[in-house]
Design a binder for these strands. Sequence first.
RNA 1: GGAGGGCUGGCAGAAUGGCUAAUGCACCGGUCUUGAAAACCGGCGUCCGAAAGGACUUGGGGGUUCGAAUCCCUCGCCCUCCGCCA
Length: 434
Amino acid sequence: MHDIRVLREQMDVLRDALGRRGALDGMAPVLDRAERLERERRAMIQAAEERKAARNAASQEVAQRKRNKESADELIARARDLGDEIAKLEHELDGVERELQSILLEIPNVTLPDVPAGGEDANRIVKEWGTPRREPGLLPHWDLGAQLGIIDLARAAKVSGSGFVVYRGLGARLARSLLQYFMSAHANEHGYEEVWPPDLVNRATMTGTGQLPKFEDDAYAVRSEDLFLIPTAEVPVTNLYRDEILDGAQLPMAFVAYSKCFRREAGSAGKDTRGVLRTHEFDKVELVRYSTPEDSPAELERLTGHAETMLERLGLPYRRKLLAAGDTGFSSAMTYDLEAWAPGVGAWLEVSSCSNFTDFQARRANIRFRTAKGEKPRFVHTLNGSALAFPRTIACLLEHYQQKDGTVLVPEVLRPCLGTDVIPRNDATRNPQS
RNA sequence: GGAGGGCUGGCAGAAUGGCUAAUGCACCGGUCUUGAAAACCGGCGUCCGAAAGGACUUGGGGGUUCGAAUCCCUCGCCCUCCGCCA
């Protein structure tokens, strides 16, 4: 969310930013209306505050007269009239602020200067690592997973429905190994504090990171309690310090959290959803950083590097894509996608998305910092990125490390936890035993 | 799920409808001091404003009133007990 002040001080910046996203034409009339509403808003506040000052003065005078046992009837009457006027003004003000708020919530973040203007076509591959396997005959992970008996989609559909996965045997252990490996690496080597957040959060938390009110249909909800299943650990972790003022000396702060992620994905059935590519529930290790405004561009490089290190340790070829303005998420000012090569599917899969939200989330969640006592608090900059999402990482691992005999080599770093160097064929889970 | 007790500044803690939140501790600045402590003086919630000043602020929201920390409604959280439970 933007500061309401941009409406009177930085309209040109806003217009330019929307232009770079290719969204100016649609929004121009809304911006004009917002500019006008903001002028009205300030006039109303001024008018209401004048009357409040007058009423406060009258009330004090009433108290004084009552102490002196004098009559205050005409003062009380005047104060009552002022009260009526104030109520009327505030009611109007409420309407204006409501509309202004809803407009502000629809204006996306301003992208940073390095972000290319334009849509998807303007995305830039800024780094490539490793050599993608290109030979023919490589199987996609849904076939491999079934052959190896480690991914059971049929029974997942029976137990939960389509869009769910059951990992079994070494598959289940592989997921646990990734959890263990990623968390330890980020905590021990990259200096992140480990956080184990709830998967169920309240409405205020979902609103703080922007999932609500606009995208309520995308989330699973527990209606009876007004709780929501988180779509990412970013939600509880970014909200940890909601409505707090941090000590600037503590910045940057860095958190790593594993969580279940729940997404309804309504309307996306069929496309790019085979196997484990897009499911309603998945697992992810997420990095979250809070920084000063000055440091956030460098912090994004750092965070993205931490995510890339995981792909390199797993030996998975990947590329880093700088998203163009039009492809950058609503709240983000700059985003790198990390895409790993899945030779069986024959596609680059997005396994991580690393973003600098500048102060856009922090303003909404009201997370500030102060470097010295008595100094005015400023909004922190928030950043986050997956490091990494499990299902697509598992898909890439299986497809990249598959061998001619149908088995899959285990990358060295996972061997201690997985307890084996190779995942053997095992058809035992394919057919129900009765 | 049930019963009861709570929620006031960083902390402790007063104020039960009216001079618009006392006091202490902690913290920051100053005086004094060779330095420190003590003592003393000042500051110490948020927002708007260049300033003068104004508005807001007693867990959140709403109501009654000329006026609410104080009365009413509602939601949240904490504590003690009962029930249930991994």
